Simulated assay, not measured.
Amino acid sequence: MLSALVWGVIAASSLTAGALLALLRDWRAGLVGGVLSFGAGALISSVAFELAQHGLKLGGPRPVAIGLALGALAFFVADRAVSKIGGRSEGGSGGLPLALGALLDGIPEQAVLGIGLATGKGVSVALLVAIFISNLPEAIGSASDMRKSGKPSKDVMSLWALVTFVCALATLGGYAIAQAVGSHVKAGIDGFAAGALLVMLVDSMIPEAKKKAGNVAGLVTVLGFAVAAGLSNLN
């Protein structure tokens, strides 16, 4: 269980790192979009080669399909709730909604790390890289907006440190749940995370990457997919 927490902190630490980078300097939208595109491709690969594949091996197609539908619906509803209070808009109300948006994206990603550890797979290098990279542009963009709105640097860092901590705890939660349930439920959890991530990618991450990176977004996304797919074969 301690290892799940440690790996969760490592994966989520890029949220704090991204906020710090945003406070140190201004970042071009194209660069942020490029990193976002690479992270999107890496996450797509993780959904295909880590979550869906592992879930099918554990419990077959039915629990994975049910998990996919439930995860997609849960993220859709939660994301709309966050959007209504400004969590997907520029600036937000004092920065808290922006942090809620990052938290909503991070929880299913991080929980899967813990599930992998609990099922004896060990740490997925591909998923770890995908989470770490995809966190950076979201934290940079959001923390930059907070800084421009006049929020003190100390408050920005405190807020993102809290988001990092909660996301790390999600890894621990994923580990604990996977330890307590059977293979069919674990397969459903894999499907749930995959469904949530797919909705996040299509509704939020990929459109933002295209907006910021322009025409190169597709190429960089494929590069991220290829790198993560290669890393999946190392596990």
Rank of each mutant, 00 (worst) to 15 (best):
G141Q: 07
F225G: 13
K84S: 14
T171L: 00
N235C: 08
D155P: 05
F225T: 10
P108A: 12
K154G: 12
V77Y: 06
E138H: 07
D190F: 15
A42E: 02
V216K: 07
S142F: 03
V129W: 07
A176K: 04
L136V: 10
K212Y: 05
D203N: 11
V47P: 02
H184W: 14
I10S: 10
G106T: 04
A74E: 04
S183V: 14
K186M: 09
S153Q: 04
V216H: 09
L15W: 08
V222A: 12
I140K: 06
A194F: 10
T164M: 14
L223Q: 01
S93W: 15
P97K: 13
S144D: 05
V156R: 01
G122C: 05
P207H: 06
L103D: 04
G91S: 10
T119F: 02
A74Q: 08
G218I: 07
S45M: 04
K121N: 08
G30A: 13
F225K: 06
G101N: 04
I133Q: 08
G94A: 14
F165L: 15
R62F: 15
L100N: 13
A226D: 04
R147S: 01
L98S: 14
L197G: 05
V220F: 06
V202E: 01
K121Y: 01
V227K: 11
G101P: 01
P207E: 02
D155Q: 15
A72Q: 01
L73K: 03
G87Q: 01
K57E: 10
V166Y: 07
L20G: 10
R88Q: 13
G106S: 12
G174P: 05
A22P: 08
D145E: 15
F75C: 11
I44R: 02
I44Y: 02
I44P: 00
V222H: 07
T171C: 09
A187C: 03
A168Y: 04
S3N: 15
S13R: 06
G230R: 05
S153W: 01
L159G: 08
L31Y: 08
G34Q: 00
M157N: 07
F75G: 02
G191F: 06
S14L: 15
I44K: 05
P207N: 10
L231T: 06
G87E: 09
A102Q: 09
F49T: 06
N235W: 01
E208K: 13
K210M: 02
G230I: 00
L70Y: 09
L36H: 10
S14C: 14
L15A: 12
F49P: 05
A209P: 04
G59M: 07
I140A: 03
L31F: 10
A102T: 07
S153V: 07
L36D: 04
L98F: 05
